[in-house]
Computed example of a mutant assay.
Amino acid sequence: MVNTAAGGNVLSLAPKVDVLKPSPFMGKREAKAVDSFLWEMEQYFKGIGIVDDQGKINTALVYLKDTAGLWWRCNTKEIERGTCLMNTWADCVREIKKQFYLENAEEEARLRLRKIRHADFIKDYIEEYTSIILEIPDLTEKYLLFNFLAGLKLGLE
């Protein structure tokens, strides 16, 4: 209930918003897949109001399937033995990345960025370029622009 200036009470209802559920993470060993899963989970937590670490961990674990689900089942034994700590959401994120990020994911993304070339449609080039740069955290705007322009096909052929 909210008091109005006139002294009356008005029932205040927050609009109901449907929150899109995250896609399950199957355990693909690719930085983009891991980052997408973690980003979707963060958005889901915000949307449904989960703020505590244990709630985040418990919710995220429901979305681990196939290889990722098998990894989690094995990981629970390590947690019970005390050889793996997972008390916070940050711990959970660290463990997921440790398991499913390729060791040289950033280097591979940098190599793909150097090799990417505009071939047919500019839209496809932009989409692929954007996808690659999301895997490299510390690129400068100047470097991004230079690399983007270097990969463009010049003139009409």
Score class of each variant (00 low, 15 high):
M1W: 02
M1V: 09
V2C: 04
N3M: 11
N3Q: 10
A6T: 08
G7R: 06
G8D: 15
N9G: 09
N9H: 11
L13W: 05
L13F: 05
K16M: 08
F25C: 01
E30L: 03
V34T: 10
S36C: 11
W39P: 00
W39D: 13
Q43K: 06
F45C: 04
K46C: 01
G49C: 00
I50T: 06
G55M: 03
K56V: 03
I57E: 06
T59L: 04
A60G: 15
A60C: 10
A60E: 13
A60N: 08
V62R: 13
L64G: 07
A68I: 11
G69C: 07
R73P: 02
R81L: 15
T88W: 08
T88R: 06
D91N: 15
C92H: 14
C92F: 15
I96W: 04
K97L: 09
Q99K: 15
F100Y: 11
L102S: 10
E103C: 00
R110S: 11
L111N: 13
L111R: 14
R112T: 02
R114K: 10
H118W: 03
H118G: 02
H118F: 02
F121V: 07
F121I: 09
K123I: 13
Y125E: 04
I126S: 03
E127P: 00
S131L: 01
I136W: 03
D138G: 00
E141W: 01
E141R: 04
L145T: 07
F148L: 12
G151S: 04
G151Q: 06
L152A: 01
L152S: 07
K153G: 03
K153R: 13
L154S: 07
L154E: 12
G155N: 09
E157Y: 03
